[in-house]
Every structure is written in structure tokens, then in C-alpha cells.
Simulated scan of single mutants.
Amino acid sequence: MSKIDLDTKVKFIHGFSHKTRIQILDSIKDNEKTVSQIVDEIEGNQSSVSQHLACLRGCGLIVSRQEGKFVYYQLRNEKVRQLLAMFDDVLIDIHMDIGTCKNHII
């Protein structure tokens, strides 16, 4: 297996570094959805959601497919779904520590 360079890791992790992107990932973790469905579910706006979807695609976390006039978004693969579940598992253990972190403000 080849070693992944640090810049690539940072770009990948960047996909998880915004509240809207996490909301989008949670929204599509079980079913593919259109932009309109995602916007409705997370109560966002179309422009912002579209920008974050582009970021998530650029980070390699999601893929899209076109069907007629609709574009459907879904997680790239099962490994991304497992990673999201792993985040939740780890957060259950450390959520109190995160609450006391003064270095990061949401």
C-alpha cells in the first residue's frame, strides 16, 4: 500500500470540517438524494448546499449520478459510511472533552 501524503490527508479531512457538510453526509448516509431533497432536509439554501456538495465531491467523500434533469448524491462507498459511524462511536466516548475545548468555536 502506498503512503498517502499529508496534504492529501488534510484535503480529505477538510470535507468533515463544516457543519453543513456533516449535515449533508448524515442526510445521504442511507439513501441517495437530490439537491432539493438535501436542502429541504437540512433546512439550508440551494447555493450553499451546492457549494458544499462540490467540496464533498472534491474531497472524494461523495459521488453523483444524473437521471434526467435530476442529480442524485450518495456516499462514495461503504467505507465512508463506516467512517461516519466510527465518528459517532468515538464521539460518544469523548463528547465531554470536546465541550471543554476552548480552541475551536462552532
Rank of each mutant, 00 (worst) to 15 (best):
R65A: 14
H14L: 13
S48N: 15
R65V: 13
V71N: 12
K19A: 13
V49Y: 02
L53Y: 12
H18L: 00
R21G: 00
L6E: 04
F70K: 06
D88W: 02
Y73G: 03
Y72S: 06
C59T: 14
S36E: 12
Q46V: 10
M1H: 07
T8M: 09
T20W: 01
I38A: 02
G99S: 03
A85R: 02
I24C: 02
S47L: 08
R81P: 00
K69W: 08
R76E: 10
Y72W: 11
N31T: 07
V39D: 07
S2I: 13
N77F: 10
I13A: 06
G99K: 01
E78L: 03
Q46K: 06
K19E: 10
D7C: 12
Q82C: 02
I28E: 01
I105T: 09
I28P: 00
T20N: 05
R57A: 15
D26G: 12
E67C: 03
G68A: 05
K11F: 08
N31G: 08
Q66K: 10
T20D: 07
L56S: 00
C55T: 04
V80I: 12
G99L: 03
I42E: 06
H18Q: 02
A85N: 06
Q46G: 11
T34G: 09
I105V: 15
S48H: 09
L84D: 10
I24Y: 01
Q74N: 13
N31Y: 10
I62W: 09
K33G: 05
I94G: 01
D88K: 03
D5N: 15
R21M: 02
L25H: 05
I105C: 02
E43K: 09
E67K: 03
V80Y: 09
G60E: 01
I94Y: 10
H52R: 13
